[in-house]
Design a protein around this nucleic acid. Sequence first.
DNA 1: GAGCGGGTTGGAACGTGTTTCAATCCGGCG
DNA 2: CGCCGGATTGAAACACGTTCCAACCCGCTC
Lengths: 214, 214
Amino acid sequence: MSAEPLDPVLEERARRIVETSIELAERGGFEAVRLRDVAAHAGVALGTLYRRFRSKEDLLVAALEQETRALAQRVRQRPPKGAEASERVVGFFALATRGMLRRPNLSRAMLRATAAGEPVLAQKVEIFHDLMRRMVVSALRGEPVDPVRPAITDEERLVGDLLNRVWFALMMSWAGGVQSHGSIGEQMRSSVDLVLGPGNHARETHRASGTTGQ
Amino acid sequence: MSAEPLDPVLEERARRIVETSIELAERGGFEAVRLRDVAAHAGVALGTLYRRFRSKEDLLVAALEQETRALAQRVRQRPPKGAEASERVVGFFALATRGMLRRPNLSRAMLRATAAGEPVLAQKVEIFHDLMRRMVVSALRGEPVDPVRPAITDEERLVGDLLNRVWFALMMSWAGGVQSHGSIGEQMRSSVDLVLGPGNHARETHRASGTTGQ
DNA sequence: GAGCGGGTTGGAACGTGTTTCAATCCGGCG
DNA sequence: CGCCGGATTGAAACACGTTCCAACCCGCTC
């Protein structure tokens, strides 16, 4: 997916750096990712680290991308099941949420990094949002993820982006301790139902909602 | 709204500190809010600043709250007009967005501060979200804001939170330069239409969507 | 083999958020 | 008036992100 044909040695180094950051963040969150420590544990000098990554946030956003790719892998192997689109989408977000909550310190650190607001970084954050949207859309369709960037309708993009934004904002609240695991699930379910209609898919085909949404 | 009966002198000091932060952030963004400078400009010692505010982010979240109250004031005086709920809600978010984009540096700084992830701070961020939700709901109803914390139905809360989250995530993207002013407006309109139906209000009363959404 | 150039290293240096502390100020009270 | 306690001050100190740099290593070319 990355286009640059990097020296494998360099790439390996970069990967080890990210890996180390993840470990440190997992243990102690954002502050625990001390760049001197990262460099030391990864066996490189501080300068080398800064040659690869522009900032601490850059590093953590790289971690976020990696973790999101891992999530995509999981989703690919075990796609969310369900007859209704809404079921599958809710299932997908449940999976994503579980993945985040499994390592709260790391997740908080990565989320925080997305808010740095520097343009170059924001582009990388956008990669994360793209990946998420793609997964949502595939859950929406009930298709496997990623048959090489399938064409996406406007409707799908709209719904995908919207739900992603809701989920992302929920994660941000969770990061501060405001949202519990349970309430995240509930709110995502409600939101999905509201957007897709409780149990069906679209704007143009409203069916009388017979099944209980709850 | 704040319950604490603070010494007016202290309160005045705190306000001057926040005011100074806003000015500095307006000029140079997050990094320009150097706490030594803030203290100096506000005419207090660094220690005094830290007695009032736990961190730089705390300071900027206080600024966010203040700015949001100012927005509420504007909305109260000039409520978003429109026959349809969706129109009014779109109008409200347009107002909010305009307010943010008028002072991009300040807004970016405040948004960034919301992501610190520290629990105490997150509670204060929640105040901001509450204010926003209240404004959305009042636009939804077409009523003035804030007749002293009116009872809110589950449906209103759901819709309000959802749209707020979408808007907040959009602002976060905007902060990194990803979203332009125009695209923010478009995306909010689409989202509102998707959630409310293009031109009507609810889940239970689906009307055939006769009017063109676009 | 000598020289070149880019990446790497170790370490110093700088700026700024945050903490700490002794000295000081000040309003109220005996 | 003299004193107390809490807030304030000024300044130093600390931690960590970030920058800078001279020395060094290594693969390549002439």
